[in-house]
Structure formats: structure tokens, C-alpha cells
Nucleic acid binder design. Structure first.
Length: 424
RNA sequence: GGAGAGGUGGCAGAGUGGUCGAAUGCACUGGUCUUGAAAACCAGCGGUCCUUUAUCGGUCCCGUGGGUUCGAAUCCCACCCUCUCCGCCA
């Protein structure tokens, strides 16, 4: 949610900034509603104030045993005016609220212009794509040849976009999770946290999945819960309705969780293999920081995600998302894309974002600034560190040999009983 | 799932229709005193939104949402949550 003060004082500036997202803000509609709101809110509060003071008078008269009928009649009249006024105010505020909570975050000044992912700006590349003296296979061919990845059975059990993994691949998957958690915990200073995978609607609103993107979520209607699309939702919402003290900041959490996405609207896209699944696992980093340090934190966080790829010796590049490709809540996002020999291209494996106060305002996540002694909004950030399924794919495709065996990256061997290779 | 008890400020805890946003204690902050500290004493000490350049002022908030009333922390309804016991169960 954007700052309502900013929307009042400088709506045109907001509209201009949002053009970077190729979004057109209906400035006139907002201004008209805002004018009405102001008029009616002031009138309503004046009526409330009048009612309160008159009612107190009644109490005083009665306690002295005097007759208060005249004032009681008067307040009755005020009350009916007040009812009308309140009803109108509620309606206007609901309309305004719906509009405002549907406005995406303002892109940071450093975000490049553009409309699609083709306009994203490459920041840096790391590592060199391995040259193969044979035709590299993709993870589907590799996994099925090994007999360790099984999409058909998953389809039988559930549906498409699910997977069953066996043996060495399942272990490799688990090793990746532990390796990532340990690295972020021990080297990057994140506190490990384990959270619910079902969350309520307030939590989804807090991080921005609701109300606009309900169709992307799995919803358990009977209980009103949602399956988390990312650990970002429960982890960031730990700070909802809280006022954190200065000395507990910054807060840095690392969390492994499954993620559930309906993938509505992605029909026909990435249907082959494990790239785009309804259920996948992710190690997520979340930071809650003071506003003045959030952009430094974004660089750090992105570096932490990159470090995992470096340790796995997987080539990647970092891009800054352009305005048109930026997520709803983010002010700035770096995507990290890993090299996949099977597809002969870079594919997203991590997304690291600074949300500034956008999520914090939605969920009232604050800290007490010792300089002002007032509660102020935090800045929130998160990034994948990394998407486990896609990392698994990257390892398989980058570490394959001619026979279709997978060499296990050295950093993962301690997690796999020092196994060095996955073979048939 | 069944039965019972309960949800009040950072914490504890009073408050069952009228100057109650809320006593009191603790914690915290500032001051006095002290060489310093402690103690004691004095003062301050929730959040939200609106109006305003700001102050001042006002609104709303006693789990949440409705309702009754001139007036609700207090009465009524629904829901949520916590605790205890029973049942079921990894």
C-alpha cells in the first residue's frame, strides 16, 4: 500500500512514477473521492464530537437529578444525521481503500524502463557455461533415464505439474535444502525459522497476494486458509501488528518451505519438467530493516543468493527487472538466472526484492525510532536463496556426463554421505 | 468434536450503563537527592485516523464484527482466539 498522505499531496507524481510500470492511474476518480472523503469525514467527526459532549451533559444532569429530556431529544436528532453521515463515509472509504490497496508499489528510481522481461537490464554475469563434447540432455531426460524422476506417477496421484523423485535425486534435493539453510545461517547471519504452510487472509493481504491475486493461490475455502505461495508470506507476517525495538533490527530470517501456486494463466507455459510446478520447495531469506538501510540490504541479500550458486559452481547472471516486469509489491527486484545447458539459456532461480514500506504499511509492521520515539514503518525484503527444484535441475544439467550420470557438487557431498555421483 | 473458564494498555491487574482511553502495581524515560549507584520522592509514559505549516483540537480503539441506548470496556447476538478436562490422533 502506498502512503495515503502521498496520494493526497502529490497524486500526479505518483501517477507519473507508475507509468514506469505501464500503469495508468485514474487520477480524477481518486481526487473526486478524496474530496468527498475529506468533507464527509470532517462532518462526521464533528457530529460525533457533538454527540459525545451532549451525552456527557445528559449524564451530568441526571446525576444531579435534573430533567434531561430536551437534550436527549436533541441528541436523537444528531444521531440520525450521524447515521447517514457514517454510512456515506464508510462507503467512500471502502471505495478509496479498494482503489488504494490495488495500486502497486512505486518503482525505485534505478529501475529501468520497459514492458517485458526482454527489457530487463543485465547487471553482471558469473562463471562460464560449460562446453560439452556431447549433446547435453535436459533434466527430464536425465532424470527419467536414471529412473529417479517420475512425472507420470505424480500425475496419477494428483495431476500435472507435480513430480515424484526417488533415491539419489530425492537425496540431492534434500541436500540442497540443508546446504542452503546452513550457508545462510552460518555464513550470512540469518536465523532459521519454521512456519505454517497455511495462512489466513490477513497474512496474504499483508504481503500483497490479496486481494488482487487470489487466483494464483490455492484456497481452502472450508477453513478460510490459503496454501503459501512462498515462505515470504508467513515469515514477513511475523512482524504484522508489531512494533519492533531498535536493537532487534535488522531481523534476518531464513526459511525452508514448500510453495504452492495455482499457476493460473500459465497454461501451456513450461509444461515440460520441473520448471513450473504447483508444488515446489524453496529456501527463502527475509529481512526486516530500518528504512535508511534497505537498499544496502537488497545488495547484501542478492549477494547471499549468488553465493549459493558460486559455491555450487553454477554459472548465472543477475538482471534488474524493468518497470513492466516488476511484481506488484516490489520497488526494486533483482532476478538471478542460472545457466541451464538443457535449455541453452538462463532461467530464473531467485528473485530478490525490496518492498520498502509497501508491505509494512499493509501489515502495520513498525519499529520504534529512538530519535523520534515514535513507531515508524519498517522496510521489508526477501529473496529466494534459492528455489530448490530449479537448483536441482541446474545441478543435474550442469553436472551431467556423457553416460547420463550426475556428479555431485563437492559442497553437497557432506550432506550425502560423501557420495560423489548419481548413476543408474 | 464435547463440556467449562476466560480474552482490558509493554506486563500484571481493577473496572457490570454516564466526565473511563481506562485505577493501581511493575517495567520504562526524565528530574531531585547521592562522590557514583541503589533506595526514596516528583514528573512523564499506548495506538489510529482527521484537521492544521505546526501547535491546539477532534475521532476511533478494552479479542473481532454487528446490535440495543441520548450514552457501552460494562447489556444482547455472532464469530475468532487462549486455557482446563474429555474424546480422537502424528
Amino acid at each position: 500500500m502506498l502512503d495515503p498522505q502521498l496520494l493526497r499531496s502529490d497524486l500526479d507524481q505518483v501517477a507519473t512514477a507508475l507509468k514506469k510500470r505501464n500503469m495508468v492511474l485514474d487520477v480524477d476518480a481518486i481526487q473526486q473521492l478524496e474530496e468527498k472523503r475529506k468533507k464527509i469525514q470532517v462532518a462526521t467527526e464533528e457530529l460525533q464530537s457533538l454527540r459525545n459532549s451532549k451525552s456527557k451533559e445528559i449524564g451530568q444532569l441526571k446525576s444531579r437529578g435534573e430533567d434531561a429530556q430536551a437534550i436527549m431529544d436533541e441528541v436523537s436528532k444528531i444521531k440520525s444525521q450521524l447515521d447517514d453521515s457514517t454510512t456515506e463515509l464508510d462507503s467512500i472509504q471502502t471505495q478509496l481503500n479498494d482503489i488504494v490497496s490495488g495500486i502497486p508499489n512505486i518503482p525505485h528510481a534505478s529501475v529501468p524502463n520497459g514492458t517485458t522481461e526482454d527489457d530487463n537490464e543485465e547487471v553482471r554475469t558469473w562463471g562460464e557455461a560449460r562446453s560439452f563434447d556431447f549433446e547435453p540432455k535436459d533434466h527430464v531426460d536425465l532424470g527419467e533415464a536414471l529412473g529417479l524422476i517420475d512425472f507420470e506417477t505424480a500425475t496419477k496421484i494428483t495431476s500435472s505439474r507435480f513430480v515424484v523423485m526417488h533415491g539419489g535425486i530425492a537425496k540431492l534435493h534434500r541436500a540442497l535444502i540443508q546446504f542452503m539453510l546452513d550457508t545462510h545461517g552460518e555464513e550470512h547471519g540469518y536465523a532459521e525459522i519454521n512456519v505454517p504452510y497455511l495462512v489466513n487472509a490477513d497474512s496474504c493481504f499483508g504481503t500483497g497476494q490479496l486481494p488482487k491475486f487470489e487466483e494464483d493461490l490455492f484456497h481452502i475455502k472450508e477453513h478460510g486458509f490459503y496454501l503459501i505461495p512462498t515462505a515470504e508470506v508467513p515469515v514477513t507476517n511475523t512482524a504484522r501488528d508489531e512494533i519492533l525495538s531498535n536493537d532487534e533490527l535488522p531481523k534476518k530470517y531464513v526459511c525452508h518451505s514448500p510453495c504452492f501456486r495455482s499457476e493460473a494463466g500459465s497454461y501451456g507455459k513450461d509444461t515440460r519438467g520441473m520448471i513450473r510446478q504447483h508444488q515446489f520447495e524453496k529456501v527463502e531469506m527475509v529481512q526486516l530493516v530500518k528504512p535508511d538501510s534497505s537498499y544496502d540490504a537488497l545488495e547484501d541479500l542478492t549477494g547471499h543468493a549468488e553465493n549459493i550458486l558460486k559455491k555450487l559452481n553454477l554459472p548465472y547472471r543477475v538482471v534488474t527487472l524493468c518497470g513492466g516486469d516488476l511484481g506488484f509489491s516490489a520497488a526494486k527486484t533483482y532476478d538471478i538466472e542460472v545457466w541451464l545447458p538443457g535449455q541453452n539459456k538462463y532461467r530464473e532461480i531467485s528473485s530478490c526484492s525490496n518492498f520498502e514500506a509497501f508491505q509494512a504499511r499493509r501489515m502495520k509492521a513498525r519499529w520504534r525510532n529512538p530519535e523520534t520515539n515514535k513507531p515508524e514503518l519498517l522496510h521489508t525484503l526477501n529473496g529466494s536463496g534459492l528455489a530448490v527444484g530449479r537448483t536441482l535441475i541446474a545441478v543435474m544439467e550442469n553436472y551431467q556426463d556423457k553416460e547420463g550420470n550426475i556428479t555431485i557438487p563437492e559442497v553437497l557431498r557432506p550432506y550425502m554421505n560423501n557420495q560423489t555421483v548419481i548413476s543408474k
